[in-house]
Each structure stands twice: as structure tokens, then as C-alpha cells.
């Protein structure tokens, strides 16, 4: 960036109030795209089960279809966690939990459990004492991140973190208790299903959810946050990998989500175009590389 550009970006026109005003224009709508994705991927997943059990398609084909459909399972829940599925409509808030939980069944996770932990991740991003995602994000290799993301339930450091939150915040504890019951129910269902359809459960449910959880740990956590410090304008980076944005669920622009979590995922490209000067002025990690126009290109 040249000195004159720097002067422009640091001018009073780029005030924090103006940044908030621009961001607010992208908030508040119902993200219907995520509701469509949630039900479509869940329908495809159920259909694959039916087609495999009736021997209409082979198990290996079902595995690959399930792998792809399961990769779409998390984002609708994530949108629900931030209230994007109800937008500004208070009477529709139940949609966030309902759709979020349906969407997470292929990932065998509780929406409420993920929600309370994700809110702590947003509040304390990159803090080793308080960010539940810290231990699979701040690791040296992709391999380590892909493995550690599976140990969140058994990592003593995370257990201690959660216990501390429970001691301080009764509402957090209630959510953890409720979420754990849902989680237990889903895992028990998985066990019963495995008893009757063992290989199908392994290849259509367990393996896809393990592979996709690793993928989520890498693309949603490690790449945007690894090695960065604490702070709203410094905890997430804009990154590129040469792949079309669609294949990464647009996590290259996760920086926008951490800056304004209330902006819907599908509105982030337009929001990042509008807020790019502010991001550059604040020297946010990778902001200099953000293109003026965001399309479905690899952002290279």
C-alpha cells in the first residue's frame, strides 16, 4: 500500500461509526439459503441410507455421497448459533435451534452444545485460557489440527475451561447439561443403528462425520486463526489456497464473520467488499490481499 493510500484509509472518513453503519446494512435478514442447505443435505443423507439399505446403490457410492452431503451439515447450525435463521424476527427464534439441530444429525452433534462453546470462541478468540477452539487451532501442522479437533470431549484442558465457565455462569451450565443430553441421545441412536446396520453406520455416518470434523477443524478453525493474537481486528486472517471459494465454504473470508458475526454467511462477500478499506486501515491480517470484487473465484 502506498503512503497516499495509507493516508486515505486512515482519514476520518473511515471512522468506527461509519464502519458500523455500513456493516448494519448487511444484518437482520433471514438467511433462507442456510435453511435450504440444512434440509437438502439432511434429505440427501436420509435418501442415501434408504438407497444403500435397499441395495439400490453400493455402499462405497453411498459413502462418497454422504461425505459430500455431511460437509454441508455444520454451516446451517453455525448460522442458527448466530441467529441468522430468524433474522430480526423474534417470534422465529425457535427456527435457529430447530433447523440447526436437524442439520447436525449427520455430524452427530448437539446444536446447543456447539452454540455455547462457539459463543465463547467468539468472545475469547485465540485466548489459551478461554477459547475452546484454541487447542486444535494453534498447532503446528494440519495433521495435528485434524486429529485434535476430535479430542475436544476428552481434552482435560477444555474440560477445565468448561468447568470454569459452568462455575461462573449458571445459564452456560444449563445449556451444557441440555446439550449433553441431546448429544447422548444422538450417540445412543448411532449405537442402536450400528447394531442393526453395522457397515452402513460405519460408512454412511461414522466415517463421514470423522472426516468432515477434521475438515472443519482445518478450514474453519486452524487456517483463519492459527498463530494470531487476541483482539477483534487481529484474531482472524484473510487467507487463500488457490481453490474456488465454494469448496472451502468461503472460510477464506472468515475474517468478516469475526468482525461482524451478525452478518449472514451469504452476505459476507458484499460486506467484505464494502468494508475492505476499513479492514486495510485497521491492518487486519491479510486485508491487503482482499480483492476489490469477491466472486466464486479462488481469491488468488
Amino acid at each position: 500500500m502506498t503512503d497516499s493510500q495509507m493516508y486515505y484509509y486512515q482519514s476520518s472518513e473511515l471512522s468506527h461509526d461509519q464502519e458500523k453503519e455500513i456493516a448494519r446494512a448487511f444484518m437482520g435478514r433471514i438467511e433462507w439459503e442456510m435453511i435450504v442447505i440444512a434440509f437438502t443435505q439432511f434429505f440427501v443423507w436420509c435418501l442415501v441410507w434408504y438407497l444403500v439399505i435397499t441395495s439400490t446403490i453400493p455402499l462405497w457410492l453411498g459413502f462418497f455421497i454422504s461425505l459430500i452431503s455431511t460437509s454441508f451439515a455444520y454451516l446451517p447450525s453455525h448460522a442458527g448459533q448466530h441467529g441468522h435463521l430468524s433474522g430480526n424476527h423474534k417470534n422465529l427464534e425457535w427456527v435457529n435451534s430447530f433447523v440447526g439441530q436437524i442439520s447436525l444429525i449427520p455430524l452427530a452433534r448437539s446444536h446447543e452444545l456447539l452454540k455455547v462453546l462457539h459463543m465463547k470462541h467468539h468472545a475469547h478468540t485465540n485466548d489459551p485460557e478461554k477459547d475452546p477452539d484454541y487447542f486444535h487451532t494453534h498447532v503446528d501442522s494440519w495433521f495435528e489440527a485434524a486429529l485434535r479437533v476430535h479430542n475436544q470431549g476428552s481434552d482435560e484442558r477444555i474440560e477445565k475451561m468448561v468447568n470454569d465457565y459452568c462455575d461462573k455462569d449458571p445459564e452456560f451450565k444449563k445449556s451444557i447439561d441440555r446439550g449433553s443430553m441431546v448429544q447422548l441421545f444422538i450417540v445412543l441412536t448411532q449405537m442402536v443403528t450400528a447394531f442393526f446396520f453395522p457397515l452402513e453406520t460405519l460408512f454412511l455416518w461414522w466415517l463421514p462425520l470423522k472426516i468432515i470434523t477434521s475438515y472443519l477443524g482445518l478450514v474453519f478453525s486452524r487456517e483463519p486463526h492459527n498463530g494470531l493474537e487476541i483482539g477483534r481486528h487481529s484474531d482472524t486472517r484473510f487467507w487463500r489456497n488457490g481453490l474456488p471459494r465454494f469448496l472451502n465454504h468461503s472460510m477464506q473470508i472468515h475474517i468478516m464473520h469475526h468482525m461482524y458475526p451478525k452478518i449472514c454467511h451469504h452476505d459476507e462477500p458484499k460486506a467484505i467488499e464494502a468494508l475492505r478499506p476499513f479492514m486495510i486501515a485497521k491492518n487486519m491480517p491479510g486485508a491487503d490481499d482482499i480483492p476489490e470484487k469477491i466472486s466464486f473465484n479462488p481469491l488468488t
Binding site: V187, M191, A194, P198, L199, T201, L202
Partner: peptide
Amino acid sequence: WFIVLFAFVFFGSVFNAATIY
């Protein structure tokens, strides 16, 4: 102990099915 129960039912069923297959 839930992890032991899970492995017993889930992986026991999977090992059994794989052996028969």
C-alpha cells in the same frame, strides 16, 4: 465408562459384520 459401552456395541457390531463379510 460410556466410551467402553460405545466401543462394545458400535465397534463390536462393525467387527462382527466385517468378519462375516
